[in-house]
Simulated assay, not measured.
Amino acid sequence: MIVYEKEDTYVLIAQQDHARISGDLMAAWQEELLGERISEVIQAAYEHDRSWAGLDVDPIWNDAAGRPYSFRDFPPNIRFLHYRHGIDELERINPYAAVLSSLLYTMLAERADTPETRAFVSREKGRQANIQAELGLYMETLHYHLNALVLCDELSLFLCMEPPGTPIRQYEWFASGFVYPQPRGCGGRRIKAQWQGDHVVVLSEGPFARPVDTVLAYKEVCKGETKQLGIAAAYKQAELRSHRVRFLVGEVK
């Protein structure tokens, strides 16, 4: 669950709804840049957070922080168990999407050196080696696809982690922009994003063949109701809302 706080409410966005935005972005990526396995890469973007599907049905309360748990602080013993099961499911459907999802999760997990992350990373590296050997993957292409997934994931998080229209300088993670991957081992360039009103995000440049129209689905839960009903019940009865957003390339000040 992605969570941010307003004065009287919490805004909660299910990870699968966040992943759908990632998929919409990847589906607009220039095909000649993605090269091979286009449909599998697009599916990876849409499905990379399927591990959270069960966890997001009933959000839970973080007593220490005094707010709902989000993906940033969710208990690791539960989180990594679901990560593994979600990637297991994806591997049965699409092994290439599974290896991309696994690589994304291990990259994030390696930022924290804990017993839980070490065990998860060790297990997933075994999975990655097996899939790479089975499919005979070209590593340069795999890494480009992974970096493309990271960009789509982060642009979606840009939509989800703060209210629409928030100035870029107020973002904890994205104030310095995003890495725009370049094919054929050329590294990456940094691009900037900026809200233009509440429904348009302008990118300084990008790999997309067209403007990307997507929908941000969310629930807004009153803080008073979380105290009366508990976060799970308050979330369940809250209305599912939607907010239209378009990504396009233009001038970023």
Rank of each mutant, 00 (worst) to 15 (best):
I2H: 05
E5N: 11
E7H: 07
T9M: 07
Y10I: 01
L12G: 00
I13F: 07
Q15R: 02
D17I: 06
A19S: 10
A19Q: 00
S22I: 03
D24F: 03
D24C: 06
D24Y: 01
L25S: 02
M26G: 00
M26P: 01
A27C: 06
Q30V: 00
E31K: 13
E32T: 07
L33D: 13
E36C: 05
I38K: 10
V41C: 14
V41M: 06
V41G: 00
A44C: 10
A45L: 03
E47F: 03
H48R: 12
G54S: 06
V57D: 11
D58A: 15
D58C: 13
W61Y: 13
A64F: 03
A65E: 08
R67S: 09
Y69E: 02
Y69L: 05
S70P: 05
F71M: 10
R72D: 00
F74K: 03
P76D: 05
R79K: 15
L81F: 11
H82T: 04
Y83M: 12
G86K: 12
E91P: 02
R92P: 00
I93S: 15
A98E: 09
L100R: 02
L100G: 03
L103T: 08
L103I: 08
Y105D: 03
R111A: 15
P115M: 09
T117M: 02
F120G: 06
R123H: 14
E124W: 09
E124S: 05
E124H: 13
K125Q: 12
G126D: 14
R127G: 02
Q132W: 04
A133F: 06
E134F: 09
G136R: 13
G136C: 12
E140F: 00
T141I: 04
L142P: 03
L146Q: 06
L151T: 00
L155T: 04
S156I: 08
S156T: 10
S156Y: 12
L157E: 10
L157C: 12
F158H: 01
E162H: 02
G165M: 07
P167G: 13
I168Q: 03
R169A: 10
Q170W: 06
Q170D: 13
Y171F: 15
E172S: 14
F174R: 03
F174K: 05
V179I: 04
Y180G: 00
Q182P: 07
R184L: 14
G185L: 12
G185N: 11
C186P: 02
C186T: 11
R189Q: 15
R189T: 14
K192E: 09
A193W: 11
Q194M: 14
Q196M: 11
G197L: 08
G197W: 09
H199R: 14
V200Y: 05
V200A: 01
V201R: 06
V202M: 01
L203P: 07
S204G: 10
P207G: 09
R210C: 00
V212I: 13
K219C: 11
K219T: 10
E220K: 15
E220W: 00
K223F: 08
K223A: 09
T226W: 04
K227I: 01
L229M: 14
L229S: 06
G230L: 05
G230D: 08
I231C: 03
I231E: 05
A233T: 06
A233M: 07
A234R: 08
A234T: 09
Y235K: 09
Y235H: 15
Q237L: 05
Q237E: 03
E239S: 08
E239Q: 12
R241N: 13
S242H: 07
R246L: 05
F247G: 09
L248V: 03
E251R: 11
K253H: 07
